[in-house]
Structure formats: C-alpha cells, structure tokens
C-alpha cells in the first residue's frame, strides 16, 4: 500500500517520538511521510501598530527558521533512513490546520505526539491530540 501519512512535528520530544513511529509505518507501507509543522496563529488576535509593521518581516524570519532549524535535519535523517518524505509549514490553528493538510495531500493516516500536559491545563486550553480525536478526517494515531 502506498500513499501519504501526515505527521505533526514541532521539534519537541513527543513529536520526535511520533515522527519515529510514523517513519517505521511509512517504510512498512511504502508511504510518503508528510512532515507538517504548524505555527500557531489566529487572524483574530490583537497586534500593536509596531507589531503590524514588523509582521511580514517576522513571518519571513519564522518560516526561514522553521525550514532551516526544524525541517532540514528531519529531512536529512528521513532520507538517510530511506523514508520518502515531503514537508509542509503552515500558519493557523494547529489541529484544524493539520486536518486541512491531510485533506489537501490526500493522506490516509495521521500521527501526532502527546506531550502529557496536566489534566487541568488540557481542560482549560484544550490539547492538539484531544481536538484531533474529535475532528480527524482519517485514522489518527496518538503516540504517547
């Protein structure tokens, strides 16, 4: 079976575990791994005039940093292991954006790590894994 698997990656230990887990599955299934990094962003947040002026520059910097510092080592590592891969960097609400990437790429499975935040903060702020359980459009594996 070939196809695409989406894995969420932000450089954290939890997302690294998800990446390793997904990579194994991708090799076994001859699938392409879509390594996705979402930068949290709401178009409805409030900015000061100075922040508005600098926004484009910051966005450019953030994308460049994500590409170089975060994605480049992963791509090198996956390619070494012989895992077919591509990368996506997007801005938006993390869970929503991951689902959108799944739809856009036509992926058949998705993988996310779980950082095991406290029950209280998860209740207040919600968690990415928790949201995905509710809204994932394809089977979603949560890697502890």
């Amino acid at each position: 079976m070939s196809g695409k698997f989406v894995v969420a990656y932000d450089g954290s230990p939890a997302s690294k575990r998800a990446l390793d887990f997904a990579a194994e599955r991708a090799v076994a299934n001859d699938a392409t791994l879509v390594v996705t990094h979402v930068l949290e962003w709401s178009p409805y947040s409030f900015l000061t005039p100075t922040e508005i002026e600098e926004r484009h520059k910051r966005r450019t910097d953030e994308l460049e940093r994500a590409e170089k510092a975060l994605m480049a080592p992963v791509v090198a590592e996956l390619s070494d292991k012989g895992v077919k891969n591509e990368t996506v960097i997007k801005y938006g609400h993390i869970a929503d954006t991951l689902c959108k990437v799944v739809k856009d790429t036509g992926a058949t499975q998705m993988f996310v790590g779980r950082d095991g935040q406290g029950a209280f903060s998860a209740r207040v702020f919600g968690s990415v894994a928790g949201s995905l359980v509710q809204i994932a459009p394809v089977p979603c594996t949560i890697v502890p």
Partner: peptide
C-alpha cells in the same frame, strides 16, 4: 471575516487585525 483571505497568507496581518488596531487608536 476573512472570506477573501488566501489561507496561504496565514501569518500575515489579517484585515480583522488591521481594523482592530486602527480602531483601538
């Protein structure tokens, strides 16, 4: 509301943010 905003431009200042900032002035 962002109906005409290209999702690929996410991360740039939205119309809502521009309006909110101008309004708070």
């Amino acid at each position: 509301k962002g109906d005409y905003s290209d999702p690929d431009d996410a991360g740039e200042v939205s119309h809502f943010q521009a309006l909110a900032t101008a309004l708070s002035g």
